[in-house]
């Protein structure tokens, strides 16, 4: 082959032009995509009906998590939007007891509250909507009927009626000679829990657990309720902090739901001890405190805790001789 310099130079000029145009085009595309975030579309739809939002709306929940859900869910706290399509609708139940400005949304609904696109923000979190949302209630509240957590309450009842606690202990309480401790079973997905309940050996070959197909398959609601309750046991986002419950008691209490900021201010040096935190930086109250009371439903029930001296001795010596 032999090159014709003049002709090649011309072709190169055209090539350069096309390549530059492509680069410019890509840049324009990137600019266009970045200027059209999902939430702006929703904010435009409600323009004039709510005070000028313009930009992401941020709150910091009581767990210290930045929560941007209300950038799209603009009207959760406003009356008059009950008939709007979903992101713009008023919250289905009153938020008076759980104002989003204090709690954020993710503390109940899970997901990725910093994200601003629905796909990332909602993720695959089963607590986003539907019955599994009630698993979140169990993280702080005793299951009670008629308080918006009927599924959870039914599930807790089923747990007892089906005799799950006969084999499975909860935090070492209850249970007989077999069955793994279910203190952290809430970390598993609902799909996994349903599969184990209906056909244990398909997931855990050789398991001695009987299938609950006969009881649960006939009533899908029962299966869901039980899974909701199991899902409430040590939720993935909750701290690994366990309060002992009375023998046969059902629910563990992650203290840091409420105490995350509180302890530091109240108790000073004791709680700054690094041993109290696990590697994720979560407080492990159960190292020192255990509670003989059932789950504290209100603040006044809570302080019923005693210290376990043995754990303090890890660092401070048996006789309190000082920091090792």
């Amino acid at each position: 082959m032999s090159l014709e310099p003049a002709r090649d130079a011309r072709r190169l000029k055209v090539g350069l032009l096309i390549a530059s145009a492509l680069c410019a085009g890509v840049l324009v595309l990137a600019v266009a995509r970045a200027s059209q975030p999902e939430y702006l579309r929703f904010q435009k739809q409600l323009a004039g009906r709510i005070p000028d939002p313009q930009g992401p709306i941020e709150v910091t929940g009581c767990d210290g998590e930045v929560d941007r859900c209300m950038s799209c869910h603009l009207a959760v706290e406003r009356a008059g939007f009950e008939k709007e399509p979903l992101p713009l609708r008023t919250h289905s139940i009153s938020l008076a007891a759980h104002p989003p400005k204090r709690f954020g949304c993710a503390i109940c609904h899970g997901g990725e509250p910093r994200a601003l696109d629905a796909k990332t923000a909602h993720g695959a979190d089963p607590r986003m909507k539907g019955p599994h949302l009630e698993a979140s209630c169990g993280a702080c509240h005793v299951p009670q009927a008629g308080k918006g957590m009927d599924h959870l309450e039914q599930g807790a009842r089923l747990f007892i009626e089906l005799g799950c606690g006969t084999c499975h202990p909860l935090s070492g309480r209850g249970g007989w000679d077999f069955g793994s401790d279910l203190r952290a079973i809430g970390r598993k997905s609902p799909a996994y829990l349903e599969k184990v309940l209906l056909d244990p050996t398909s997931v855990l070959p050789g398991a001695t657990m009987p299938s609950f197909q006969g009881t649960l398959a006939q009533d899908e609601q029962m299966l869901t309720d039980l899974v909701v309750f199991l899902g409430s046991l040590a939720l993935p986002r909750s701290a690994d902090c366990q309060m002992r419950t009375r023998s046969g008691g059902l629910v563990e209490q992650p203290c840091t739901r409420c105490h995350r900021q509180g302890v530091k201010e109240q108790d000073g040096a004791w709680h700054r001890c690094g041993y109290l935190k696990d590697r994720a930086g979560e407080l492990r109250c159960g190292n020192c405190h255990s509670s003989e009371s059932p789950i504290p439903a209100t603040e006044s029930d809570c302080p019923n805790v005693r210290s376990r001296r043995a754990s303090c001795a890890v660092c401070h010596g048996r006789a309190g001789e000082g920091v090792r």
């Binding site: 090159l3 090649d8 130079a9 190169l12 000029k13 090539g15 350069l16 390549a19 492509l22 680069c23």
Partner: peptide, 11 residues
Amino acid sequence: HLIQREAIWML
């Protein structure tokens, strides 16, 4: 011939 080719390829 070479340098502009390289520029095109990089772009």
